[in-house]
Design a protein around this nucleic acid. Sequence first.
DNA 1: TTAAGACATACGCTTAAACGTATATGCAAA
DNA 2: TTTGCATATACGTTTAAGCGTATGTCTTAA
Lengths: 135, 135
Amino acid sequence: MRSEKNNEKSFNMELFFAALADNTRLRLLNLMQDTEVCVCYFVEVIGTNQPKISRHLAYLRKAGIVAARRDGIWAHYRIMMPKNEHAARVLRDIQEWLKTDKVMQKDRIQLAKVCCAPQPPVSIQGAPRPQIAMG
Amino acid sequence: MRSEKNNEKSFNMELFFAALADNTRLRLLNLMQDTEVCVCYFVEVIGTNQPKISRHLAYLRKAGIVAARRDGIWAHYRIMMPKNEHAARVLRDIQEWLKTDKVMQKDRIQLAKVCCAPQPPVSIQGAPRPQIAMG
DNA sequence: TTAAGACATACGCTTAAACGTATATGCAAA
DNA sequence: TTTGCATATACGTTTAAGCGTATGTCTTAA
């Protein structure tokens, strides 16, 4: 996609679909299906460096697909339904789509494991647990 | 999107959404809403050079969203519903979405004008007319 | 068989997306 | 206030998307 200002008047379809055209971002959305998720869990489950996750989350934020909540040193991200009804419909369809994908299912199981483990990995010890890990 | 082989087994979501993340390609899809359309009409309505149109149509073809039909020197493109039910659902939603967009509506009106004009522009004289220009 | 037209692709360029690494920011405990 | 940690952003590099122009391919008509 070529750069273009995100006009307030009309929803930017290009930006919306560009945000969805990346496997890491789809995995992030998948992990946020049922609840907000702390950034550190994304890093743990996706298994990559933290700046990469942060950048992709920023991309989703700028596209109006997710919202962030700060809680002290922790940042929690959640899916935010676009006001545009058509975009919202597509996003809901995508959520259902992701639920049927084997790799995405694995990711959600992995999130549940990491969150509910009695002895979490050292890298995320003390991280805030999401209320619900899976649907 | 980074390059990745389009695995036959699982639908390539990245490629699918990347194909939708471009305004020219969305305009092309919009013009194919009701019927197959000859390439020369795309060039006329979009108002750009022919190789650009051809390249974007090739992109849509590779993403499995459109199909081409050769008829002598003419090439006709039409929307092809993906076999993947989720992709098909999203694509149908997008078609409805495009119908509500002012700019896209203008494009379809323009297509109708060009196709039904008693004296078509010189550049497309003799071009095969689509059966239906608008919904 | 040549010529002309419609369409596809090759080529070189510009721009931006995505990456890893380094660093800045902001909060919290000591 | 200093230290440590979670997160965000800056920076430089690599890769590929998108573009205009040029050229190739295929078909039809002369």
